[in-house]
Simulated scan of single mutants.
Amino acid sequence: MTDPASPPLLTTAANLTAPPLRRRMACWLYEGMLLFGVVFIAGYLFSTLTQTRHALDNRHLQQAFLFVVFGIYFAWFWAKGQTLAMKTWHIRVVDNQGRPLTQARALWRYVLSWLWFLPPLAVGAAFSLPGGELALIVVGWVLVWALLSRFHAQRQFVHDALAGTRLVHFQPVETPKRNKR
């Protein structure tokens, strides 16, 4: 008997396997493209509210604002199971037992997901690297970070293992279509 207070399992233990790395990275790239819209709307809102006239004015405050907006975006959708990109690629995020994420766990996953970018950005800042070299280091780090999932027992990304979450294949149940006469 299950505890009525605990959320239902979204998938069985047999279905907790990670989607192939190629599909997860395609979803990751698609998510990045979709975030352009989020950045555009959030940047416009920030610029309007702060009356910023030049892109470099209030730069650090705008970056902090975008960090918070991204956190809200991802925590909201991950707690519901999927972002739009994840729906497209039939990927769902669940906890290690296959249950939906809580807002707190989704937020923790968001914070840990910055491990995709913060280490190379810190190196770039420490050594004052020009844009081209920094881009190369970021791309190299992302590739290494993604390939590290091949060494995890369940093929999960490191930030998912640390957050107690996992990406799983999720095929939505199709509803039968009614005949229209």
Results as ranks from 00 to 15, higher is better:
S113K: 04
G124T: 03
L129Q: 01
V111H: 00
P119L: 13
L112V: 06
W108E: 09
L118P: 07
F117R: 11
A122N: 12
E133F: 04
A125I: 11
L107F: 12
A125K: 12
A122K: 11
L107V: 09
P119T: 10
S128P: 08
A106L: 05
W114I: 05
Y110G: 01
G132P: 03
V111I: 15
G124S: 07
L121H: 06
A106E: 00
L112S: 01
R109N: 01
G132C: 02
L121I: 08
V123M: 14
W114L: 08
P120M: 03
A125F: 13
G132R: 01
P120C: 02
V123D: 07
G124I: 00
S113E: 11
R109Y: 00
A106I: 02
G131C: 08
L115C: 15
G131Q: 07
V123N: 11
E133A: 10
L107I: 08
F127R: 11
A125R: 14
Y110R: 03
A106N: 03
A126D: 09
P130S: 08
L112Q: 06
W114E: 08
A135K: 02
R109W: 00
A126G: 12
G124N: 02
A126S: 13
A125L: 14
P130K: 08
L129F: 00
F117A: 12
A125G: 12
W116A: 14
W108L: 13
A126T: 12
Y110K: 00
V111P: 01
V111M: 07
S113D: 10
W114N: 06
P119G: 14
S128H: 15
L112I: 06
A125T: 13
A122F: 13
A125P: 09
G131S: 10
S128F: 15
A122I: 13
A126E: 10
R109I: 00
L107Y: 06
P120D: 01
L115P: 12
W108Y: 14
F127Q: 11
Y110I: 00
G131D: 06
A126W: 15
V123C: 13
P130D: 08
F127C: 05
S113A: 14
L121C: 06
P120E: 03
L121G: 02
V111C: 07
L134C: 04
A122V: 13
A135G: 05
W108Q: 10
Y110M: 01
V111D: 04
G132K: 05
W116L: 12
G131Y: 10
R109G: 04
L115T: 15
L129Y: 00
G124Q: 02
F127L: 14
V111L: 14
L107H: 07
P119F: 11
S113F: 09
G131I: 08
F127G: 08
A122L: 15
A106K: 02
L134F: 01
P119I: 11
L118W: 10
Y110S: 00
W108G: 10
A126F: 15
A106H: 05
W114K: 07
W116F: 15
W116C: 13
G124H: 00
P120H: 03
W114V: 05
P120N: 04
L129W: 03
Y110F: 09
S113C: 14
G132Y: 01
L115M: 15
A126C: 12
S128K: 15
W108R: 10
L115A: 14
P130I: 07
P120G: 00
F117M: 14
W108K: 13
P130V: 03
W108C: 08
P120K: 04
A126V: 10
L115E: 13
L134A: 01
Y110A: 04
E133I: 09
G132M: 01
G131L: 10
